[in-house]
């Protein structure tokens, strides 16, 4: 019983970060109708950003987070303005292929530059645990969970309660009409891709304290994020939140009962079934 409870707590903590990953991908899909295949690599960049800040400059990951976030935002804007906006906004297939190309380039460039080795950030608090109602919980994981929630909350509030947020929602609903109302659609797309990239980077930074850091870690996250986004509903931030938590718990609880290989097979089966039965996901529809 104790094992089950701690698995659930562990799953919820991980799930919060997954939710942030999924929120970034989902936002981009909701506004631009494209799946960003480079999302996993952007998480990897966030992780390495914090890693190098720690290694070379001795900056703590929770401080470098404040650096990684704006850098990733502008990187995302640059990707959208420099690459994706160069093809027709209606041609989703070509846009997806550009993100695929980007993913291949980033993953392999990182391998070339930094070697495929696994690294860790050897901060003093890496293995510190806190006792919560008799369960030992890793402190960095609690911080990652809390940080993810703050980030998702900020993005949500930005979309719902600010003028640029309203412009983004308008563009998501009807790009052409938004353009006619004087909204600079290409700029909105760049901002959205920037926010999505920032979510990925911040998530990467938050987990860099307790995950192994290596160039190919992106492909692990991308499949997980796809599962969550499809399950929660592509384009929905609430869906990403709920989906992230559910998948996080399912993942850690099933690890107690079934072998890891079977666990992945269960994922993809859920994934396919959701696509077939309810492609909109549990919360599909709006941002």
């Amino acid at each position: 019983m104790g094992e089950l409870v701690s698995a659930i707590v562990f799953g919820i903590l991980n799930g919060g970060v997954y939710a942030l990953l999924a929120a970034g991908l989902s936002l981009i899909f909701g506004v631009m109708s494209i799946v960003n295949f480079a999302h996993g690599e952007l998480v990897m960049l966030g992780m390495f950003g914090s890693f190098w800040a720690f290694r070379l400059l001795g900056i703590d990951p929770y401080v470098s987070l404040l650096l990684v976030a704006p850098v990733m935002f502008f990187l995302g804007m640059a990707i959208q303005l420099g690459l994706i906006n160069r093809v027709s906004l209606d041609d989703h297939k070509q846009q997806i292929l550009i993100t695929l190309g980007l993913s291949i380039v980033l993953m392999n460039l990182a391998t070339l530059l930094w070697s495929p080795n696994y690294r860790v950030i050897a901060a003093g608090y890496r293995d510190v645990t806190a006792s919560l109602a008799g369960i030992q919980v890793s402190v960095p994981r609690i911080f990652a969970f809390a940080g993810s929630f703050v980030m998702i909350g900020s993005v949500y509030a930005f979309l719902k309660h600010t003028r640029p947020g309203a412009m983004i929602r308008a563009t998501a609903q009807d790009r052409v009409a938004a353009g006619l109302m004087g909204i600079n659609v290409k700029l909105i797309y760049a901002v959205v891709f920037g926010i999505g990239t920032m979510c990925a980077g911040v998530a990467g930074s938050l987990i860099s304290t307790h995950y192994y850091i290596y160039p190919r870690i992106g492909s692990m996250f991308i499949m997980l994020t796809f599962v969550i986004v499809v399950f929660g509903g592509m384009g929905s931030i609430r869906g990403a939140l709920v989906g992230g938590l559910i998948i996080g718990v399912v993942e850690s609880v099933s690890a107690v009962f079934i072998p890891p290989s079977l666990k992945e097979a269960t994922y993809y089966s859920i994934f396919l079934l959701t696509l077939w039965i309810r492609p909109k996901g549990i919360f599909g529809g709006n941002l």
């Binding site: 690459l83 160069r86 093809v87 027709s88 041609d91 070509q94 292929l97 550009i98 695929l100 190309g101 980007l102 993913s103 291949i104 380039v105 993953m107 392999n108 460039l109 391998t111 070339l112």
Partner: peptide, 19 residues
């Protein structure tokens, strides 16, 4: 890894130049 980097760059380049 280098050949994959080149693959990726060609993919992006070709799509941007001639979709």
């Amino acid at each position: 890894g280098l050949s994959m980097v080149v693959y990726g760059l060609i993919l992006i380049g070709v799509i941007i130049m001639s979709r």
